[in-house]
Design a protein around this nucleic acid. Structure first.
Length: 525
DNA sequence: TTGTGTTTTATTGCCTCC
DNA sequence: GGAGGCAATAAAACACAA
């Protein structure tokens, strides 16, 4: 009898198995798209879900289920954050200024769903009030962005957590986000983050303290140079003037990167190659899709419509959110980055936690590509990625073009960036000559910043992110690489990473370089 | 290579809202 | 009552250490 039941059960299982075959892992592209879409739509409508599902080669049911679990995941993270927050020293939060509650994982409890019910947002979206809702959200955010320097940090974190908390809201993904924001766990921190999802609780404190001190010092030095009348410093990315990238990338320092134990080509280039190599894999993986990349590529050529602009605004918001990261142990994603992306940022997870082995068949590669994408997107003020009608797929966008351009961007024009930090350029077509005339002013600022360059000069070149990651993995044993990749014309910071306290630069640089939207970049260049 | 732990995916039942 | 979401659960996939 029992045997019979077992048989029945077995048949049931078999039927179930036949029905479902095997559980299919979603491709990294799908996951990224889902994450991105999730950041935009916590509660998408059925239509949206269906649309999105088709686009990424899933069923509406799968998307619904994924969203359900994703929300659950967020919720659990929030709970974990709430529990863990109490264990953390309040001193870490001292420099928050705004008084907002901010836990070390960057999840601002005040911001998490506090101001805008995601469902409400969704309903606004669905019923044609997208912009109003968004405006309300962003307006709220802008309100905080307009705060003074101290509050801008935490408030931006609030923004991040508000919109991006799904990405990296809390401890559950603190490692991911920390990496994304510049915190690389000491590679010897076994048992802490060696699995990529470990919780370096102690490290958060170190980061927070270090960052607070550094940021406070920088702000103190900046004084009124710290923009208060506009977007957070270094957060609004204006495109470089025409011809800014025309200088060929000939510096060998940018030709090679130390990635892990390998001296490789620019990660950007790697990203291109790797990404390209992924396409057939995913197609094989999920024959249903032609490849998310293909879709993304198609989407890249769409012109930006109003919805895109909305998403572009969102993208810019993410950038704005980056600033406070220096005052926060970490905040919501990446973005992208997710994504971001972090997004975005997930690269570091694989680089650091899944580390040397790089056993992840697709994760590390994919995430690296995503990182590349995020870098570029952010460096370009999000406008590149915003060009896609489906921003949730943008992580894969323009990889080829962006990586190349990104590489160029870091070349000799780094000094351009500080101009943007100190001055609000209203137009994208700001002539080169115009900001050259203000060179003097920026030079003065540079002098000011020079005093603090020890803290931040890790962020000099695009290679710094790689170097920092390397440091994180190899217990800063590879710091000698830093000078090797220094950029001529950027004399001051090339070699400081080696001598300075490792924690400080690392805590800054990953965020900046990893996301490409660090305000410190503006300060120091 | 294997065991273990974690994460992700799929399913199901219950609850709430319209 | 139906739709949608949440929560619990199981199982596959994965990463890592021994």
């Amino acid at each position: 009898m029992e045997e019979e039941s077992c048989e029945v059960r077995s048949e049931e299982n078999k039927a179930l198995t036949d029905k479902n075959k095997k559980r299919k892992l979603k491709t990294p592209d799908q996951v990224k798209a889902l994450e991105k879409f999730y950041n935009e739509h916590k509660y998408p409508s059925e239509e949206l879900k269906l649309q999105f599902a088709e686009k990424i080669g899933l069923t509406e049911k799968q998307v619904s289920g994924w969203f359900c679990h994703r929300r659950l995941k967020d919720k659990k993270r929030d709970e974990a954050c709430a529990n863990g927050r109490q264990d953390r020293s309040s001193a870490i939060m001292q420099d928050r200024g705004s008084g907002l509650k901010q836990d070390s994982c960057g999840s601002t409890k005040q911001g998490d769903y506090r101001y805008v019910d995601p469902r409400e947002v969704e309903s606004h979206r669905l019923y044609g009030n997208d912009h109003q809702a968004l405006d309300a959200n962003y307006g709220h955010i802008s309100h905080y962005s307009g705060m003074d320097d101290s509050s801008s940090e935490s408030s931006s974190a609030l923004q991040d957590s508000h919109f991006l908390q799904s990405e990296v809201p809390c401890d559950a993904e603190s490692s991911r986000y920390l990496a994304q924001n510049g915190i690389i766990f000491p590679p010897n921190a076994k048992g802490v983050g060696n699995r990529g999802y470990g919780r370096p609780s102690g490290y958060l404190k170190v980061k927070g303290e270090v960052e607070n001190a550094a940021i406070t010092a920088v702000k103190r030095q900046l004084g009124r140079h710290y923009r208060e009348d506009g977007p957070p410093l270094g957060v609004e990315f204006q495109p470089l003037p025409p011809g800014a990238f025309e200088v060929p990338a000939t510096n060998p320092a940018h030709e090679s990167y130390f990635i892990g134990d390998h001296l490789s080509q620019s990660p950007d280039i790697n990203g291109v190659h790797r990404q390209a190599s992924l396409i057939p894999r995913y197609e094989a993986y999920n024959p249903k899709m032609t490849s998310p990349d293909s879709y993304v590529d198609r989407m890249n050529f769409r012109s930006m419509d109003s919805s895109d602009q909305e998403k572009y605004s969102h993208h810019k918001l993410k950038q704005k959110s980056s600033l406070p990261n220096y005052g926060q142990p970490f905040t919501g994603r990446n973005s992208p980055l997710d994504l971001n992306d972090d997004s975005t940022g997930e690269t570091s997870v694989y680089h650091t936690s899944r580390k040397h082995g790089m056993k992840s068949k697709h994760g590390s590669e994919e995430m690296r590509a995503a990182s590349v994408s995020n870098h570029s997107a952010l460096l370009y003020g999000g406008k590149i990625s915003s060009g896609s009608a489906e921003p949730w797929l943008d992580d894969n966008d323009h990889i080829t073009s962006k990586v190349v351009r990104r590489r160029e961007q870091f070349e000799p024009k780094s000094s351009n960036l500080i101009h943007r930090a100190s001055e609000t350029f209203d137009t994208e077509d700001m002539a080169l000559s115009k900001w050259v005339t203000k060179k003097e002013k920026s030079a003065a600022e540079r002098r000011i910043m020079k005093e603090h360059s020890d803290v931040v000069r890790m962020n000099v070149s695009p290679t710094s992110d790689i170097r920092v990651e390397k440091r994180g993995r190899d217990e800063f044993s590879q710091l000698d690489h830093a000078p090797k990749t220094s950029v001529p014309g950027l004399p001051t910071w090339t070699n400081h990473a080696k001598g300075g306290p490792p924690e400080i630069p690392s805590s800054f640089s990953e965020d900046e370089t990893g996301n490409g939207h660090s305000p410190m970049i503006w300060f120091l260049h």
